[in-house]
Amino acid sequence: MPPLSRRSPRSPRFASPDAVVAALRTAGCVFAEDEARLILAAARTPDELADMVDRRVTGHPLELVVGWAEFRGLRVTVTPGVFVPRRRTEFLVEQALAQAPDARVVVDLCCGSGAVGAALAAGLGPVELHAADIDPAAVDCARRNTADAGGRVHTGDLFEALPAELRGRVDILAANVPYVPTEDVALLPAEARDHEPLAALDGGTDGLDVLRRVVAGAPRWLAPAGCLLVETSERQAPAAVDAFIRGGLTARLAVSEELYAHVVIGTRA
């Protein structure tokens, strides 16, 4: 690992890169050196450096501190109040690309930052990309992240946000829905619980409320060979698969042990 740059902006409170590392380590950051390197590279002034370190040591997610997250090789902009894309969700993208490698119409539902849609567009080449979220902050962020792919981002509640012209045409419908059961939200790490929108985390009593709504509407929007992909947890996977089948879709579960990721894949029966 190369040494921390000594040409990065410094604050009088952090006169050396080692001081930044020490502050992060004291706060409990396991990868303090790596995080310090990212913060030092992102800070443009000594005051900004001090502010970024203060935010990180008080529990703000690193991605929100530096303003971006790495997702499937892309640098995805993330802004305060927007759900931070997780590495495990890269598995959903991989499964979508394998299921529909020739997809031309892609929808990223519950898009958050738009990371899934941007990654799908990067993997597929030119596509008609749409994304939607109920949160205006997420929509603004997703517009920035999907702009290079020509993405159209819509504000609204699930399918209500989408243009009617998409009905029956969607080849990939990716929906990284909230799936934390309501009573478990309080058990989440503080980084998520305190700094990410509740609507992006809380999936209702059993965590599957939004998933069921997506499954119920999906058949009207999927192309004849289109697929729906939804991330869930290991515990919820059997119920999620059952919801797909009850919604009139064929269903299979894909699992990545490495990423601890579970994705239900459905097609029109």
Rank of each mutant, 00 (worst) to 15 (best):
R213S: 10
G117L: 07
A132G: 05
V263A: 13
W68Q: 06
R37E: 11
R212M: 04
A199H: 01
E63R: 07
P80C: 12
F91H: 15
R252F: 06
A137N: 10
P238S: 05
P181W: 09
D108H: 15
P163C: 10
A149Y: 05
V105W: 00
A96F: 07
V66I: 15
V127N: 04
R75V: 15
A149S: 07
R213E: 07
P178D: 08
D102H: 13
D184L: 01
F14Y: 12
R212C: 04
V210P: 11
H195N: 11
L166F: 00
A186Q: 04
L208H: 14
A161S: 11
G59R: 11
L109A: 13
A98T: 12
L198A: 01
A269N: 06
L222A: 12
G67F: 14
A23H: 00
L4C: 00
A119E: 08
R169H: 07
L64I: 07
G207A: 02
V76T: 05
A118W: 09
D184G: 00
L129M: 13
A164E: 15
T77I: 01
G112D: 06
F83P: 03
A240L: 06
E160A: 15
A254H: 12
A103F: 14
V255F: 09
R144H: 11
P61S: 04
L198C: 09
A115I: 12
G203M: 08
D51F: 14
I172V: 15
A122V: 02
R75A: 13
A190P: 04
V210K: 10
R167Y: 03
T250Q: 13
A50V: 14
M1A: 13
E160R: 14
P3R: 02
A42L: 08
R72N: 11
A15M: 00
S256M: 13
I134R: 15
A32P: 01
L38N: 12
F71H: 08
R7P: 03
A19W: 04
H262R: 14
S256D: 07
E234F: 13
A121N: 07
P189Q: 00
A23Q: 02
R7A: 14
